[in-house]
């Protein structure tokens, strides 16, 4: 474990907590893409499938984190699609998730470390996570704005994988550890946030709201 990975995971936890709090406090999921949250839930379940395959001793923090990620993302989907369904902006959350899931699944079968079920699921989860935020960014471009709290969520979510890139550089240098698939997908994922990062740094930090087109 290194500082980058630690802050990356904390940033990821913060993102999940911010979104949950926003939906729970405002009792509304306006401006939130349900599809992105569904894709994240699929990513966690397919990536941490080992939790379901054999009992894991919960004293291990990593296992606890995995359970938190899975339960929090499923609960977020429950809030969006059931509890606060009336506030779900389905018309603007219109990016076809199949256009993200099918290519990720196909690519996972073509480019992977080992052709076995667990490894293919893990690879699928990595590829899917790289593009999972697209419905959310698409929704913001359709509505033309993002609530400040949603901007903070996106900033934390984007920062998590950006910090992981620093973690991979660190691990390459000190542990000569390289996970090419995760690195390439992580770089693609972070690049997708660049436009948002620019808006966040230039607008939200100054207390303004993000309104598109910028």
């Amino acid at each position: 474990m290194n500082i980058f990975r630690l802050f990356g995971d904390l940033s990821h936890l913060a993102a999940i907590a911010i979104l949950l709090l926003k939906i729970w406090k405002t009792r509304s999921c306006a401006g939130v893409s349900g599809k992105t949250q569904l894709l994240f839930a699929v990513c966690f379940i397919t990536r941490y499938i080992d939790l379901f395959l054999h009992f894991v001793s919960l004293y291990n923090t990593e296992k606890v984190m995995k359970l938190i990620y899975i339960s929090a993302s499923v609960f977020t989907c429950y809030l969006i699609f059931f509890k606060f369904k009336a506030t779900y902006d389905g018309n603007h959350d219109s990016m076809r998730a199949e256009f993200l899931i099918v290519p990720a699944a196909g690519l996972a079968c073509l480019i992977n470390t080992k052709f076995d079920a667990i490894e293919i699921l893990w690879t699928f989860s990595i590829y899917l996570e790289a593009v999972a935020i697209l419905p959310q960014l698409f929704l913001i471009s359709k509505t033309g704005e993002a609530e400040t709290i949603t901007s903070h969520y996106l900033f934390a979510q984007g920062s998590y994988r950006a910090l992981y890139i620093l973690n991979w550089i660190y691990r390459y240098h000190y542990e000569s550890h390289v996970d090419t698939i995760a690195i390439v997908a992580g770089v693609v994922q972070t690049i997708l946030y660049c436009d948002f990062f620019y808006l966040y740094i230039t607008k939200v930090v100054k207390g303004q709201k993000i309104v598109l087109p910028a």
């Binding site: 990975r5 995971d9 990821h12 990593e62 984190m65 995995k66 990620y69 470390t113 080992k114 893990w122 992981y164 973690n167 996970d179 995760a182």
Partner: peptide, 10 residues
């Protein structure tokens, strides 16, 4: 097989 590639990150 100990060379089993373990993904040790979340």
């Amino acid at each position: 097989n100990d060379h089993e590639f373990k993904h040790d990150e979340l």
